[in-house]
Design a protein around this nucleic acid. Structure first.
Lengths: 229, 229
DNA sequence: TAGTGGTCTAGACCACCAC
DNA sequence: TGGTGGTCTAGACCACTAT
């Protein structure tokens, strides 16, 4: 008899999934549901509110609660730190820094991140291995105007990924996924053929409105990103 | 003075983002926060509970609430119906059925969907256009044991996607994203070169535990899936 | 304008678990 | 075992909006 709102939620969910309450149909109001389930209205409110957050129903004051015509489908992915992702799968993680440059901000990066004027960026290239097989190629640019001390960090041991997570933990980000073809550099680092299709993730990060970093992460051939919903 | 819990939530979020309460740090308990914000404990509870759902803090009974060391990053994507996706971007949607077969369930599909014994499936191939440019190639298999009337539907006008959404609205799904190379069939339908890297989404769907459909959706060259978090 | 959901409150009991 | 979060209740007032 604990978490009554969960029971209420599941009963309602079942009625919707089973079609007792069809798409577009109005379901009873909170007072009636509270009476049916012998509980307080607040309990029903939480149950139905969570179903609305899941996209199963739609609520409007005065109009009541309706089953959605087509449920909103939200696929949700956890974005872990590479090392944790690899170690969680039981494989050994290894990291290697391939390249490190200090340079003026390229124009394409300035445009992409909304960086004004000029300034320097730290350009890092590294590879993440799982059981000594290349897993991910990382090409990263760090805005030194925002993180000047990044220039003094030794990235040969610590991956920029982890250093950033510790240093700027709570940031806004935009991530996008696409497909790209392997060029000679990628082929040599990932051990695949030139022209192979590869899964690419790009992420831009801001902290309190200020651009922090942009990274291209290219995964080993055959990589999949999966979720259930 | 409406939605006090939102104000409380934002004040706490700001303190965390600004570093007033650093990673791993214990934040005041609900009673103290309620006193500070001059509100009921339930109000603080909702605020902090939602921050926990967002992955910003971690709560444990007796141990209290701590700021997460590295916030859990969840990228969330809405999975719209193709037509809506295209029309939302202001482009004209067009659909074409390329192929329709009734056949015995191939072994690979049986394994992938957890289909027992034999049975027939409806195999549909179609293309979705945006402003008359190919946008997505769809290769779909429908389990006729679960949806026998799918065999009688005229899919030359209605896309299987939309028919399924109307017919089986509330289902469980597994979706996965990867990169694939264009073969001759894809190249001809999508108007790209053979070997081009393409973004691939695969979805398996179940309703009340029963396999419904498996679909491979291959997007036009250069397609990106983007979200902020 | 009336009905519905959105939210707050004050108090209560309980489950969990670090100490 | 005591402190903390998790939840429920009964009642209240308010905001929105369909009618």
């Amino acid at each position: 008899m604990k978490a009554a709102f969960r029971d209420v939620k599941e009963v309602i969910r079942t009625r919707i999934v089973d079609g007792d309450w069809g798409p577009g149909e109005l379901i009873p109001n909170e007072i009636d549901l509270a009476a049916e389930f012998q509980c307080a209205r607040a309990t029903v409110n939480r149950a139905v509110r969570e179903l609305a957050e899941e996209g199963l129903v739609e609520r409007k004051r005065k109009a009541g609660t309706r089953v959605r015509m087509s449920p909103v489908r939200r696929a949700q992915f956890e974005i872990p730190v590479v090392r944790e992702e690899i170690e969680a799968s039981g494989r050994m993680y290894r990291y290697a820094l391939v390249r490190r440059d200090l340079c003026d901000t390229p124009d394409w990066l300035r445009a992409r991140m909304g960086l004004g004027d000029r300034g320097q960026v730290l350009h890092l290239v590294c590879v993440h291995y799982a059981d000594n097989n290349p897993y991910q190629y990382e090409d990263r640019w760090i805005n030194l105007a925002a993180l000047p001390n990044a220039a003094d960090v030794d990235f040969s041991e610590t991956s920029p990924n982890e250093w950033l997570v510790e240093t700027v933990p709570f940031s806004d980000a935009e991530i996008s996924f696409s497909a790209t073809a392997s060029d000679e550099v990628l082929a040599s680092h990932l051990g695949c053929a030139v022209g192979n299709p590869l899964f690419l993730a790009e992420r831009s990060t801001w902290w309190r409105g200020e651009p922090i970093t942009y990274v291209r992460m290219v995964f080993q051939r055959g990589h999949r990103m999966t979720t259930r919903f």
